[in-house]
Design a protein around this nucleic acid. Structure first.
Length: 809
RNA sequence: GCGGAUAUGGCGGAAUUGGCAGACGCGCCAGACUUAGGAUCUGGUACUUCGGUGUGCAGGUUCGACCCCUGUUAUCCGCACCA
C-alpha cells in the first residue's frame, strides 16, 4: 500500500464527513485532550511537533474508541519575539509572516491526519482572541491583581533594547552576545504571589510528573522563619527575615541590599562617598558576575549601627549585594558563626564571629561555620541549652511579647512582570491620563487594536510609543487628552487562558461561557514539553485560580493530568540545531513512508517520556511492519481452504493478552510496548495461518488487530478496514475488549530454582494450589534432592518455585 | 554549591513493580525463493575457557535484587548567594 496516496484520500473523506466534529450534545462522558499549542515561528512542523501532536492524537483516538466524547482542539500561540526579530532582520511584517506560517502549519497538521476539530481553532494574534486577553487583564486589574511598579529589566546596550528573560542566555544577549545589564522601568505586574500558598499546596492534587511538581515547588520556594525588628541607633527601624532566629545572639552585624530604599538614610556623611560608589558598582554588576557562584562577596560599611533586640548590643550595618532586595525584607541579620555566606563576608572584612550553637553529639564536626541543625544553644543567656528547633520557637515567642518579632512565612516566587517593550503582542488596555492617572480601557471599547503600520526597529523605546494614531486618545473618565500604554503583554499571558477559549471560541459576548467551560474542563490530559514547568504551567494555574475567585470558573486547577514527551535528538545524539547540521525534517520521510509510518515509528522507537536520538532504520522497520499486516490481512481474506479444527488456543490467548496490554499501555502513554505487543500478535497470526485455518476466527482476529492499531496508523487501518468490508469509519468502532477467562491458560510452566538458580522447568495445571505445587516438586524431583536437606521451599503461584537446599549431614 | 533524574547486548529499548534479565524491533550471521534483491520467508544472535558469568562501580538486606538500603562514579535537567 502506498501510504502517501491513501492518506490524502482518507483525510479528504474524514473532512467531508466531519468525522472529528465534536458533539456538544453527546451524552458520553467527556475527555478534554490537549497539546500545548503551536508557536508559528518557523514555517514548518518539526520532528518535535510530530512527536508531541502525533502521539497525543493517538491517545485521543484511543479514548474516542473507548467510548468517550473527546474534545481535541488545536491552535496557535501566535504573538511573540521570534516573529518580530524575523521582521527586524528581513523586513517582513510579523503579521504577514505569522499568518503565512500558520497557513502552512495548518496544512501540515491536516496532512498528519490528526483528529483535531478545526472549528475550535484559536489564534492568539487575532483581535477576536486578544480582545479577551485584554479583558482578562482588566478583570485582574479590577481585582487588584494587576499593578504598575518600577522594576529593573534586562537591557542590551548594543541592541539598545529591552530583552525578555528568555532572551538572556548565560547573561548575554541571545542575538549579539553583549553582556546584559539592568535598567529601571515602570512595568505592569500580575500579583501571582497572592496565590503562592495555594499554587504550592494544590500541587499535591495533580497527576503530574513528580519532577515538574518539584520544580514548581522549588520555584515557589516556601520558607518558614521569623521576622525580627531592629531599631537603629539613629532612631529608625527595619525588619529582617531569618530561618535561624535561634542564632540571634550571634548576630554581629546586619547587611542591607544596596538597592534597598533605606540605604541612603542609613548612610552617614563620612561613608556617603564609599556607599555611593558601591551602589554604582552593584548596579553595574553584570548578569555574568551574578551567575558566578564563586564570586567574591563585596560590601561597604554604611556608618550606622543597629540594636540587636535580644541583647541590646550595637552592631554595624553594612551594604552588600549578596543580599537580594527582592527577597524577604531586603535586610539580613548576619550570624557568621552559623552561616557560610556571613562567615565568608565576616572573614574578609574582619567582623566578629561568635559561636552561639554548639554540637549536640560527640562525633559531630563543629568547626565554624557550624550550620547543622543538630545543636544546642550557647552564649545565649536564658536560652542556653535549648536545641536549634526549640531555640527558634522560644526566641521568636520572646521577641513577640516585646513586639519586636514574630513567625513569618516567605516565598521565593516573584510577581509576574508582563510588560514588554515590543510590538508583536497584545496591547495593554490602559490609558494614562494626566488628571486621572492609570485608567482601564472600558470593556465596550475592546479590543485595543494593534496597528499594522508600526516602525518596530529597536531603539530602546516601545515601538507603539512612536505611533501617534495609536498613542493619542481621550481619557474615558474625564475626556482629557491622554495616551495609551505603549507596552504589550508577555505572550505567556495569551497562553495562560487559551484552553478556556477553545470550547467557546466563537463567543463574541464574553471570553467564555462559564456553563460550557465548567462542563468541559479541567483538561483531562495535557501533553507538552517540560520546558514550561515554571512558566506557562504556573501562570495557567494562577489564571485559573484568579478567575475562579472572580466567579468565572468552578474548578481549581486547569490541567488534571500532565504528560511531558521527551526530546527527539539528532542522529548524533545531540540536540537538533541548524548550526550542528543534525536536523531531521519529517517531510522527506512523510513523502516516502507516509505519516502513519512516521508517527508509528515515533511511538515505537522511543520511550515516550524519554525521547532519544533519531534512527533512520527504525522508520523502515515500521513501514515493513505495516506491509506485513497488509499481507496478513489479504492472506486471511483471500483464503479459501477452511479448517474449523485448527488449534486456535495459543492465538486466542495471545489475542486477548494483546488487547489487554495495548489498552493498558495506551492509557499510560507506553506506545512502544503497545506496538511490540501488536507485532507479537501479528507474528502469532502468521504462524497460525501458515496451514489451513479457521477463516472466520482469523478474520475476527484481524478485525481486532486493525482496531487496536487504528489510533497509531489511522489512514492505514481505515483503508484496510474498508478493504475487508467494515462500516465507515473504523474510528466509530468500539475499542476491543478482552475476556478475562481467555487469559487463563490450562497449564502453567514454572521455573524451578535451586538456591536461586534456575535448574529445571515443569508444567502443572493452572488451578494447582501452593500445596499441590510443593507436593509435586517434592515427589517429582525427590531423586535430584537425594543427599540434600530441603531447608525451605518457596512457591510463588503463577511465577516461580525456589528450593533452598544444603548438603545433608 | 543545592535539588532531581538516568545508567540494562553492537543499537533503540522491555521486564506484570522483589520472582525465568534482554520482550519487540534495528543491525549482524546463515539458509530458502529468485535473472536479480536494498523485496519476502525461515533459523540464529548478551558473554563464556561450556563450568559458569552477567543490568555503571563497591558493599548490604533477602530463599530470591535491574528493582529495596548504604556508599561511589559518569551523564543529563532544573535552580543560582533566597538569609
Amino acid at each position: 500500500m502506498y501510504l502517501p496516496e491513501i492518506e490524502k484520500k482518507w483525510q479528504k473523506k474524514w473532512a467531508d464527513t466531519g468525522l472529528y466534529k465534536f458533539d456538544k450534545h453527546s451524552d458520553k462522558p467527556k475527555k478534554y485532550v490537549l497539546e500545548m499549542f503551536s508557536y508559528p515561528s518557523g514555517a514548518k512542523l518539526h520532528v518535535g511537533h510530530w512527536y508531541n501532536f502525533g502521539l497525543a492524537d493517538t491517545y485521543a483516538r484511543y479514548l474516542r474508541m473507548k467510548g468517550y466524547n473527546v474534545f481535541h482542539p488545536m491552535g496557535f500561540d501566535a504573538f511573540g519575539l521570534p516573529a518580530e526579530n524575523y521582521a527586524i532582520k528581513t523586513g517582513i511584517h510579523p503579521k504577514d509572516s505569522t499568518v503565512a506560517n500558520i497557513t502552512t502549519m495548518e496544512e501540515q497538521l491536516k496532512a498528519m491526519g490528526a483528529s483535531f476539530d478545526w472549528d475550535y481553532e484559536v489564534k492568539t494574534c487575532m483581535p477576536d482572541y486578544y480582545k479577551w486577553t485584554q479583558w482578562c487583564f482588566l478583570q485582574l486589574y479590577k481585582k487588584g491583581l494587576a499593578y504598575r511598579s518600577a522594576a529593573p529589566v534586562n537591557w542590551c546596550p548594543n541592541c539598545n533594547t529591552v530583552l525578555a528573560n528568555e532572551q538572556v542566555v548565560d547573561g548575554e544577549c541571545e542575538r549579539c552576545h553583549t553582556v546584559v545589564t539592568k535598567k529601571h522601568l515602570t512595568q505592569w505586574f500580575f500579583k501571582i504571589t497572592d496565590y503562592a500558598e495555594e499554587l504550592l499546596s494544590d500541587l499535591d492534587t495533580l497527576d503530574w510528573p513528580e519532577k515538574t511538581k518539584l520544580m514548581q515547588k522549588n520555584w515557589i520556594g516556601k520558607s518558614t522563619g521569623s521576622e525580627i525588628t531592629f531599631q537603629t541607633v539613629g532612631g529608625g527601624e527595619f525588619s529582617v527575615f531569618t530561618t535561624r532566629a535561634d542564632t540571634l545572639h550571634g548576630c554581629s552585624y546586619v547587611v542591607i541590599s544596596p538597592e534597598h530604599p533605606m540605604v541612603d538614610q542609613l548612610t552617614t556623611p563620612a561613608q556617603k562617598e564609599a556607599v555611593e560608589a558601591y551602589k554604582e558598582y552593584a548596579a553595574k554588576a553584570s548578569e555574568i558576575d551574578r551567575l558566578s557562584t564563586s564570586r567574591e562577596k563585596t560590601g561597604v560599611f554604611t556608618g550606622s549601627y543597629a540594636i540587636n533586640p535580644i541583647n541590646g548590643r550595637e552592631v554595624p550595618i553594612w551594604a552588600a549585594d549578596y543580599v537580594l532586595a527582592s527577597y524577604g525584607t531586603g535586610v539580613v541579620m548576619a550570624v557568621p558563626a552559623h552561616d557560610e555566606r556571613d562567615f565568608a563576608f565576616a572573614t574578609k572584612y574582619e567582623l566578629p564571629i561568635e559561636r552561639v550553637v554548639a554540637k549536640k553529639h560527640e562525633d559531630q564536626d563543629d568547626s565554624l561555620p557550624f550550620c547543622e541543625y543538630e545543636g544546642v544553644l550557647v552564649n545565649s543567656g536564658q536560652f542556653d541549652g535549648l536545641t536549634v528547633t526549640e531555640g527558634k520557637e522560644a526566641i521568636t515567642k520572646h521577641l513577640s511579647t516585646l513586639g519586636k518579632g514574630d513567625f513569618k512565612t516567605t516565598y521565593r516566587l516573584r510577581d509576574w512582570l508582563i510588560s514588554r517593550q515590543r510590538y508583536w503582542g497584545a496591547p495593554i488596555p490602559i490609558i494614562h491620563c494626566p488628571h486621572c492617572g492609570d485608567v482601564p480601557v472600558p470593556e465596550r471599547d475592546l479590543p485595543v487594536e494593534l496597528p499594522y503600520d508600526v516602525d518596530f526597529t529597536p531603539d530602546g523605546t516601545s515601538p507603539l510609543a512612536k505611533h501617534q494614531g495609536f498613542m493619542n486618545t481621550k481619557c474615558p473618565v474625564c475626556g482629557a487628552d491622554a495616551t495609551r500604554d505603549p507596552d504589550t503583554m508577555d505572550t505567556f499571558v495569551c497562553s495562560s487562558w487559551y484552553f478556556l477559549r477553545y470550547p467557546d471560541n466563537q463567543n463574541s459576548e464574553m471570553a467564555w461561557d462559564p456553563a460550557i467551560i465548567n462542563s468541559l474542563l479541567p483538561v483531562d490530559k495535557y501533553v507538552g514539553g517540560a520546558e514550561h514547568a515554571c512558566m506557562h504551567l504556573l501562570y495557567s494555574r494562577f489564571f485559573t485560580k484568579a478567575f475562579r475567585d472572580m466567579g468565572y470558573l468552578n474548578f481549581d486547577e486547569p490541567f488534571r493530568s500532565l504528560v511531558h514527551q521527551g526530546t527527539i535528538l539528532g542522529p548524533d545524539g545531540e540536540k537538533m540545531s541548524k548550526s550542528k547540521g543534525n536536523v531531521v525534517s519529517p517531510d522527506a520521510y512523510i513523502e516516502k513512508f507516509g505519516s502513519d509510518a512516521f508517527r508509528m515509528y515515533l511511538g515505537f522507537g522511543f520511550a515516550y517520556i524519554e525521547g532519544g536520538p533519531w534512527n533512520d532504520g527504525g522508520i523502515k522497520s515500521v513501514a515493513k511492519y505495516l506491509d506485513r499486516v497488509e499481507r496478513l490481512t489479504d492472506r486471511i481474506y483471500e483464503a479459501t481452504e477452511d479448517n474449523k479444527s485448527a488449534d486456535a488456543k495459543e492465538v486466542t490467548y495471545i489475542l486477548h493478552k494483546t488487547i489487554k496490554a495495548v489498552d493498558e499501555d495506551l492509557a499510560t502513554f507506553s506506545f512502544n510496548t503497545a506496538i511490540a505487543r501488536m507485532m507479537e500478535l501479528t507474528n502469532a497470526l502468521y504462524k497460525y495461518t501458515d496451514n489451513a485455518f479457521d477463516i472466520d476466527f482469523a478474520k475476527d482476529c484481524i478485525r481486532t488487530l486493525l482496531k487496536l492499531m487504528a489510533p497509531f496508523a489511522p489512514h492505514f487501518t481505515e483503508e484496510l478496514w474498508e478493504r475487508i468490508g467494515g462500516d465507515y469509519s473504523i474510528f466509530n468502532q468500539d475499542f476491543p475488549v478482552y475476556e478475562e477467562k481467555l487469559l487463563v491458560k490450562d497449564e502453567i510452566t514454572y521455573p524451578l530454582q535451586v538456591n536461586g538458580k534456575v535448574k529445571a522447568r515443569f508444567a502443572v495445571p493452572s488451578d494447582f494450589t501452593k500445596e499441590q505445587i510443593e507436593a509435586y516438586v517434592r515427589t517429582e524431583y525427590a531423586a535430584d534432592f537425594e543427599g540434600m536437606d530441603i531447608v525451605k521451599l518457596i512457591v510463588v503461584p503463577g511465577r516461580i518455585v525456589n528450593v533452598v537446599v544444603k548438603p545433608a549431614k
